[in-house]
Nucleic acid binder design. Structure first.
Lengths: 123, 123
DNA sequence: CGTCTATGTTGACAGCTGTCGAAACAGGTG
DNA sequence: CACCTGTTTCGACAGCTGTCAACATAGACG
């Protein structure tokens, strides 16, 4: 498999990737493309450190948190930055620099989209 | 190594891992252990092939499908078997041999648990 | 301007992961 | 019993991933 899906990382693709994602997993077999889009999001949450970072941001006041508030997850700060970058690339987080500190925010539509994916079919 | 029809391969960790998982991601920052458990499930769905296999099983009649019905995902059959094994180890699927064919079934509580994880906090 | 704190980037490395071909196993059929 | 089909396991390999130390950048402060 060697498909270069490394986007130009100019962020606008991020918001795009989440909204029109896929039907619930139990509704229809996903197509290859749908699966690739959805798998990217699941993969981003498939690491304990990233999951903790994401949860920390999501549960923080206003769904927004400074790096300094969430960087206590047991790994070095460069690693934290690396994971945050990956979450951002996956379209799950957005970042904004407010003076000295950088604030990360959860993209609300992401939770909705992923939640819908895991909706049980009314069978 | 296995001549019995009693499947000894039900790793206790697997069944354990699904039911008592974690609170919604946006409710509280996950602990390290919670994150590890949840990340295992997300990771299992973090591969396009596995996601398609899971979706194919989940959307099949009765939430159950024969390997022969879902093995058309673009990779060789050994690879399909490998991914199904991983999904089974993650506690997302269960397998049962009915004569010649092996049927995989979705563990219903898994969808519920993961759906709950992605529930937006009532903020 | 110089320095200090807060983040991000780079380069490198061990370890895991996905993939395949070949072989083994399970069960049905003639 | 021999044979055939469906499924899993084995062994191997390229490529991705997570991690860190060291360095670079951005803004604040004196």
């Amino acid at each position: 498999m060697s498909n270069t899906r490394v986007p130009p990382s100019i962020e606008p693709a991020a918001a795009d990737a989440v909204a029109p994602c896929c039907p619930p997993l139990a509704e229809r077999p996903l197509t290859a493309e749908e699966a690739e889009v959805a798998a990217r999001m699941f993969k981003a949450l498939g690491d304990p450190v990233r999951l903790r970072l994401f949860s920390a941001v999501a549960s923080h006041e206003g769904g927004e948190a400074c790096v300094c508030d969430i960087s206590d997850v047991g790994v070095s700060q460069p690693t934290v930055s690396h994971h945050l970058k990956k979450l951002k690339e996956a379209g799950l987080l957005t970042s904004e620099r407010r003076g000295t500190w950088v604030h990360y925010r959860v993209e609300p539509s992401v939770l909705a989209a992923m939640g819908k994916l895991l909706t049980a079919a009314p069978r």
